[in-house]
Amino acid sequence: MTGFLQNTFNGLVSGAFYALLALGLAVIFGMLRVVNFAHGAFYMLGAFGAYVLLAEAGVSFWWALLLMPIGLALFGMLLERAVVHRLGRLDPLYNFLFTFGLTLILQDVVKSRYGVQSSPYATPAELSGSVDLGLFDFPTYRVFILVFAVAVCALVWWLLSHTRVGVVVRAATERPELTRAFGIDVGRWVTPVFGFGVGLAGLAGVLAAPMRAVNPLMGADLIIVVFAVVVIGGLGSIFGSVAAGFGIGLVQSWGEAYAPPIVAQTLVFIVMAAVLLLRPAGLFGREESAA
């Protein structure tokens, strides 16, 4: 029983990363209809940025947690203005290629400077040790990640459902053309939304630094699962991406504990195939109307 609960908790913690990354991908896809292949690279930059800030400038984890998402959001907005926006008028393939190429460039730039081995990042002192959860002890830092990620997802949810910006983003996500016809300059919201999604990836990266190996390929390994998460949740569905993120975290953790390795490694994709067979638009997705 204790073992099961521990696996469940670990699953929720990896699910927290999936949820944060999938949330960013979902808002970007919803608003821009761009599949951001560079999302994993932005996550990696978040983690590496935290590492570099600490190693070379002595900037603490807490400052990195604030500065890296903001910095990456600004970088994302710049990219959107400079390239993504211009390519948006062409075939979607151009933005696929651009974000994919950008991933390779960012990875190699980091690789050429810091190599491929993992760089250590110490858990902040305030969050080291473990907490007693009754039946078992659990690392404090992991509890922090879980609480923090749930709070971020809840905040995004609240913004989308209770603010004017949220209504406009939801409307533009669902029917961009109609929303423009109601006097709303959808284009004006595209850049901040892209930046916001990239910032979320950076935030997940900073959170990952003390827990996961910080190396140039850390995003590439993770992002494949995140794409599966987004598809399972339903493309463009904000709620679906978060729910599927935590769900897949759990499934993976239970699979690693109780299923043979060959099944555990492919479990995410088995789930994705099953979901696509039963609900082609994903668990929380809507069938796109023929338009």
């Binding site: 209504v167 939801r170 409307a171 669902e174 029917r175 109609l178 423009r180 109601f182 006097g183």
Partner: peptide, 24 residues
């Protein structure tokens, strides 16, 4: 003029599919 500027000048579109949003 872009679409949203035309709307702001006073054009009100009632589309043939009634233009409902499922998520609003």
């Amino acid at each position: 003029l872009p679409t949203h500027r035309r709307a702001r000048l006073g054009l009100g579109w009632v589309p043939d599919d009634r233009g409902s949003y499922a998520s609003l």
